[in-house]
Amino acid sequence: MTLISPACRDALSSWLDGQKALAGAARNTITAYQGDVVEFLSFMTLHHGEPQGLGALERITVADMRAWMAQARAGGVGARSLARKLSAVKSFYRWLADREGFEPTAVLSTRAPKFQKKLPRPLAEDAARAMIDTVELQAASGWVAARDVAVVTLLYGCGLRISEALGLTGADAPLPATLRILGKGGKERVVPVIAPARDAVATYLRLCPHPQQNDAALFRGTRGGPLNPRAIQSVMARARLQLGLPATATPHAMRHSFATHLLSAGGDLRAIQELLGHASLSTTQAYTAVDTARLMEVYDRAHPRA
């Protein structure tokens, strides 16, 4: 942060502390916010030829904002990433303007670049089931195979993120009918655990050679430590090659599949939002676009005039 004035450094630190304490932002989010705002403030220092104190930040113009965005795009920053950076800068400015009592219109009125939102890439129902079956065939030992099946079944059967599944501890076993999951930003949700997921975890626990402890990870690596998510990513990569599935068939795709298949079966969008732990319904609504796209594919194939 050498290009940033001490006053700006202190202001940024206070804002980030507020994001952690009041907004409940996750560690990775805080790190991204810090990087984005530091990058912006550093650009303004170089752009104006001197460190930008709080007074100088109040005088940022629309032309300054355009120069920053043009420099970012010229440096290879994509529209989606630039929109995220601008969002962080606006959030910081909104807080700073309220604290310092200035008008942040030039920053807040800056429009984010348009970009095509990526739709979730779920697997078809038969492919999701095949993935679980094929994952079991990848491991050399029975308990590792049972472990991998248990994790992937939780991702698909309960819509968990890989970090949430691997965050379970021995205190969660045997799995109950519902789990309390602490998700992104410290948001807690209650997730029903279907019988196949409970059975898969019970099989893994019966075969696992490492003793279970309440305060230790439920899913263990081969040496007994917490299971690394890369192990699940790797076993799914081998399985998808075997099945001829695309590179998008990742652990997170199992969570996408959970949501999409629930929606296809008539699930309520609000209920799915709660099950996934999405803060905003707009995030969950992306699955309606996926479902509509699939419906149109079926329509195009099956319509008598097609």
Rank of each mutant, 00 (worst) to 15 (best):
A79S: 15
T248C: 15
M1Y: 12
T283R: 05
T260P: 08
A145R: 02
P113K: 08
Y287H: 03
T248R: 13
Q212M: 14
G101Q: 00
R80L: 14
L218Q: 09
A231C: 10
L16D: 11
D64N: 05
N28K: 08
L137P: 01
L168H: 06
M44I: 08
N228H: 11
R180H: 07
L269W: 01
G24M: 12
A302H: 03
S14P: 05
L12K: 08
A200G: 00
D10Y: 04
A56G: 15
A21N: 08
P251W: 07
A72T: 07
L243T: 13
H48Y: 08
T61A: 08
A145P: 09
H210E: 07
P304N: 13
R294S: 14
T105W: 08
G225S: 11
A83Q: 10
A74I: 11
R294Q: 15
G157N: 01
I194K: 07
G157W: 00
A26G: 01
S5I: 00
R240H: 02
R111S: 09
Q273F: 10
R305N: 15
W143A: 01
I272R: 00
F258G: 02
R255W: 01
P104F: 04
Y287A: 14
T153H: 03
L54N: 13
N28Q: 05
L276N: 02
R206C: 03
A124L: 15
R27W: 01
G24A: 12
C158I: 10
L96D: 12
V144D: 03
D215W: 01
A23G: 04
P122K: 00
E164Y: 14
D268S: 04
D148M: 03
D300G: 10
G76H: 10
L16G: 03
K90I: 04
L22I: 11
I30A: 09
Q242I: 01
G266P: 11
L269E: 02
P246Y: 07
A23W: 06
E50R: 14
L281F: 10
E274C: 00
K85Q: 13
K85S: 11
K184D: 07
M44D: 03
L295H: 13
Q233S: 10
A21K: 08
H47V: 02
V190F: 08
K118D: 12
L119S: 06
D36M: 04
W15S: 01
A32K: 04
V152R: 10
A247M: 11
A56H: 14
P211R: 08
T283N: 02
A26P: 01
L179Q: 12
E103A: 12
A171W: 00
A26W: 00
P211Y: 01
V298R: 12
R84Q: 07
R255T: 03
A237I: 03
L22M: 12
G157C: 00
A56L: 09
P226Y: 14
E297W: 02
D36G: 04
L168E: 04
E297H: 08
C8T: 07
A171S: 14
D215Y: 04
R220P: 11
I4M: 06
M69P: 07
R121D: 12
T283C: 13
G49R: 07
G267S: 06
R223D: 14
F92W: 08
A74G: 15
I272N: 02
A23Q: 13
Q242L: 15
R66S: 06
P211E: 11
Q213S: 11
A249C: 09
V191N: 11
T169P: 09
T284Q: 09
M65Y: 03
F40L: 03
A302N: 04
L96C: 09
T29W: 11
I232K: 12
A11K: 05
